[in-house]
Design a protein around this nucleic acid. Sequence first.
DNA 1: ATGAAAGCGCTAACAC
DNA 2: GTGTTAGCGCTTTCAT
Lengths: 337, 337
Amino acid sequence: MANPTIYDVARAAGVATSTVSRVFGKPGRIADATRDRVLQAARELGYEPNPHARALTSQRTQTIAMIVSDITNPHFFELIRGAEMRAKAAAYTLVLVNAEESTRMELEQVRRLTRSVDGFLLAASRQPDDKLADLAAARPVVLINRRVEGVASVVLEPWEGSRQIVAHLASLGHTSLVYLAGPTNSWMAASRWTALRDAAAELGVRAVRTGPYTPTVSSGGAAADAAIGTGATAIVAHNDLLAIGVLRRLADRSVRVPEDVSVVGFDDIFAADLCTPTLTTLGGAHSDVGRAAVEILVESLGQPRSSTPSPQIVLPSQLVLRASTGTAPAGERTTQR
Amino acid sequence: MANPTIYDVARAAGVATSTVSRVFGKPGRIADATRDRVLQAARELGYEPNPHARALTSQRTQTIAMIVSDITNPHFFELIRGAEMRAKAAAYTLVLVNAEESTRMELEQVRRLTRSVDGFLLAASRQPDDKLADLAAARPVVLINRRVEGVASVVLEPWEGSRQIVAHLASLGHTSLVYLAGPTNSWMAASRWTALRDAAAELGVRAVRTGPYTPTVSSGGAAADAAIGTGATAIVAHNDLLAIGVLRRLADRSVRVPEDVSVVGFDDIFAADLCTPTLTTLGGAHSDVGRAAVEILVESLGQPRSSTPSPQIVLPSQLVLRASTGTAPAGERTTQR
DNA sequence: ATGAAAGCGCTAACAC
DNA sequence: GTGTTAGCGCTTTCAT
């Protein structure tokens, strides 16, 4: 038979269609003998439940959508990977959408997919806070690397991590740093800068910001030039891609790293350990972020809507010291206490 | 209204439900005035078509599944990216599944998703040929970087590319090379080796193969040791990840690249241009491969099944020369004609 | 514990 | 060009 339905199975097993439905839907509520008979018939006919018919009545699709702001960034890769693994484990299907840094497209895709998925993972969303609150009020949403009051989220710790970067630089004798900012509507960019600035103030380091820059290798050139222009001895780039671009430009300009200037990135992407010099960066278990996001989304789908308290999860980040940071150049160096 | 249906729209616009359905389904067949009226009503009510109800009757889901054999490999990233972009452009939703190098899981996921998607993209499938032919006979399938008789596919040219690698090495005076093989059930691994071997024979280069190796950086250590053991002056690794692992191990063993030995990879991943030395590799437009695969899949979905001639597309690869290849060490060098 | 039957929202003949 | 109507395959009351 081409596409056997519960009717075929019901007939073959000599039961009602509702019984077949129950066998597949809520296994507890059926007598063992009947269940075995149904399962047997189903197997013989090669029956597979039709997810659309199921979704039509039950309103549950066993599918979640992950919308990433920029699939080009390898950092998202880990996020996606973690999410995919956890989704598969929970028997959910993962739909992947790239918003290409466009807030409009992000919204449009959420709208388009609203009926086809049970919930959304919004990774590094570029929407304003109120928009996200609206979206989350209307459907299950978990934000990734973005935090908004009252909306569930999972973020990789940016505050203490940024603090550690500044402390690390300060301990190497740096008295000034420049932050190469990421996109203006990036929550992470804002969080990092705030934390860097505060930590710098505390530790007596001068901190300035330039940008915003598109977080890509190719933007690193202009960013590096601007950074050098500030006279700072340490450059903290919004992410590793940008940092690697900076490294390249500095090499072209014969600025030595870390002798003349130190460079720090964020994310600890695969390439951070391969570039020359290897890059000091704030990393963390990105795939765990994706995993955790799926976890709390799926969990919230089980509960009656709105009864959930919107968990805000923070996963630890971790400063990875490599060769791109070193003691501040002597001329600029201040006496350490 | 919470979830307006075509009934609500029909009532508001004063038409039949079928008219509403047509407006959204086949825009041509309706009078302009009626269409505008329906669209207007739909907008006012905030109507969104329910994809499941649509799929249930029409048998079309506007969704395609992409199953990748190993999402960890950054090379797949580009494939996914190209596929996602093209799918979105064609108003298709992309479901992403990682098979984690497991043939069983690959099959299982295809089965599970068969009813929910219109077709499959199988990237670097690890299934045997006959299994793939079976799968493709039962549903629309496009293979990516895998070729099987009678099944539609898109591959990045491996033969002429491998040939160019050998020619490049030969022109540098190398007379022997070792290929560090990828997974045994990888079609690409087989194709590359065959092409390398044939080209080597033609050009008077001795070629041996070791392995198989898991194509990861961490496998590169053992692979490098084995390669050195063969005495070959040129190492061709199954992919860039493995090649980078080899580079690391050689550096640890103080084997100079390219002075003592040359190293070549495949894929031209982002990191190939960042490692030390930078890696000579056979690249190509991977995202175009993903794009093309979606294209022919979507196209075949338009046609009546089986009327399509299963296109086998080959996209050009391209040898990217970097610093990891150089003239063969003098001792081993043969006189050039 | 199981059956009967009414939809879920939409499409696709088939009429007119 | 538009309306009528019968399902698509399943879940879910409501009975029994």
